Simulated assay, not measured.
Amino acid sequence: MSDFSDVQLGLDTFGDVTRDVAGELLSDAQTIRNVVAQAELADQVGVAFFGIGEHHRREFAISSPEIVMAAIAARTERLHVGTAVTVLSSDDPVRLYERFATLDAISGGRAEIILGRGSFIESFPLFGYDLRDYETLFEEKLDLFTRLLEEKPVTWNGSTRAPLTEADVFPKTENGIQAWIGVGGTPESVVRAARYRLGLMLAIIGGPAERFRPFVDLYHRSLAGFGHERLPVGVHSPGHVADTDAEAWDEAYAGFEAMNNTIGRERGWPPYSRLRFQHDVGPEGAIYSGSPETVARKIAHTVRLLGLDRFDMKFSTGTLPHEKMMRSIELYGTKVIPLVRDMLS
C-alpha cells in the first residue's frame, strides 16, 4: 500500500472478564454488556472496525461473538463488526456462513470474519474434535467455507464432515462478506491466505513489527503467483491509551501481568515483569501503549513499514477496568486516529 489515506484504524477485544472499581471480578453477563457499550463508543468516535475474539475459558466472557456483534450492529451506524478470530477448526463452515450472512443483513453490510486456528485448544474437546486432526480440520473447513463465500451451490467432499452435493445455503448477502485469515507468523499460513484469496491479518503480539515484513512480501508474491488481485493486509496488536505515557503504562501493567502469568503457568513461560513490559511498550515491542502521541507514532511507523490497509489495537487485556477501556477508546478515536492520519499524510 503506497497511499495510506484510506488506512483503517480498528479495535479488538477478547471480552476479558474485568474488575470493578472495588476490585471485584465482574460477571460474564456484565462484561458482555460492557463490550456492547465499548463498541457503541467506538462507533461514535470514528473507529472503523470492532473485532471480538472467540474463546471458551474462564478469563474471557465471549464464546458466541456473532450474537454480541448482532447487538452491536443494531446500535451502531458506521462501525464494521467482525471476529478476532473465529476458531474455524471447531466450527461447522455451513452454520458459520449462515450466522455471518445473517449478521451482514442486520448490520447493513458491515460484517467481517477473521478466520483462524485460535491460540487456545479448549474448543476441540468441548465440541468433540481430536487434536490429532488439527491440520486437516482447518484445511478442509477453510476450503469449504471459502466455497460457501461464493454464494453458489456447493459440491464438496472431505473427511471432517458429511459431503455436500449442490447444496445452496441461505441467506444470501447483498455484497458478499469481507473475510481474512489471522496469521501468527508461519510462511505456510501466509501462502494459504493468498491461495484462498483472503485478506491477511497478522497477529503481532511479541517482538518488533519489522520481522513481519518478509511475510507481507511473501503474501503479495503469492497472490500474484496465484493470479489473484491485491488484497488487504492488517495487523492486530495489544495496546492501551491514556493521557500520558506514565498513566497508560501504570494502568495497563496489572492486566498484562495477570494475563501473561495465567497463560504462562499453562505453557511454561517465565513470570512477567515490569522490565519486560517496559521493553514491550518501547520501539522494539509489540504493545502500543502510552499517550495518544506515543501510540500514534508507533502505529504510523508500523503502517508505513508493513504497507498496511488496517491496524487493529486490542484494547482489552486482563482485568483492566471498563472505565479505563472506555477512556482508551475515546482517546484512540478522538486523538490517535487523527494523529496517525496526519503523520501518514
Rank of each mutant, 00 (worst) to 15 (best):
Q8L: 12
Q8M: 13
G10S: 11
D12I: 14
D12H: 13
T13C: 07
T13H: 03
V17I: 13
V17K: 00
T18H: 01
D20P: 05
D20I: 01
V21W: 06
V21I: 15
A22C: 14
E24F: 04
L25I: 09
L26M: 14
L26F: 08
L26G: 00
S27M: 09
A29G: 15
Q30E: 15
T31W: 00
I32Y: 07
R33M: 13
N34I: 10
N34T: 05
N34M: 11
V35S: 04
V36G: 07
A37Q: 15
Q38L: 11
A39D: 06
E40V: 14
E40G: 05
E40P: 09
E40C: 13
L41I: 14
L41M: 15
D43R: 08
D43C: 14
Q44A: 13
V45P: 04
G46W: 06
V47M: 05
A48H: 15
F49H: 11
F50N: 05
F50Y: 14
G51H: 07
I52G: 04
G53W: 12
E54Q: 15
H55P: 05
H56F: 09
H56K: 04
F60W: 12
F60P: 01
F60C: 09
A61L: 09
I62H: 02
S63Q: 06
S64K: 02
S64G: 06
P65M: 02
I67P: 08
I67V: 11
A71F: 02
I72C: 00
A74E: 15
A74V: 06
R75P: 06
R75T: 08
E77K: 14
E77S: 11
R78F: 13
V81F: 12
V81Y: 08
V81Q: 10
V81L: 07
G82L: 02
G82D: 05
V85W: 09
T86V: 15
V87Q: 03
L88T: 00
S89R: 01
S89L: 01
S90R: 10
D92S: 02
P93A: 14
L96D: 02
L96H: 05
E98Q: 15
R99S: 10
R99H: 08
F100A: 08
T102D: 06
T102G: 07
L103K: 05
D104G: 07
D104I: 05
A105N: 02
A105Q: 13
A105L: 12
I106V: 14
I106Q: 03
I106R: 00
G108Q: 05
G108T: 04
G109T: 03
R110I: 01
R110H: 04
E112P: 05
I114K: 01
G116C: 10
G116R: 06
R117A: 00
R117T: 01
R117N: 03
G118I: 11
G118L: 11
S119C: 05
S119V: 12
F120D: 00
I121L: 14
P125Q: 09
L126N: 11
L126R: 07
L126C: 07
F127I: 13
G128Y: 08
G128L: 12
Y129D: 08
Y129M: 12
Y129H: 15
D130E: 09
R132K: 15
D133N: 08
Y134I: 00
E135M: 13
T136C: 13
T136K: 08
T136H: 10
T136D: 12
L137H: 08
L137R: 02
L137S: 01
F138R: 02
E139H: 03
E140K: 00
K141W: 01
K141M: 04
L142N: 05
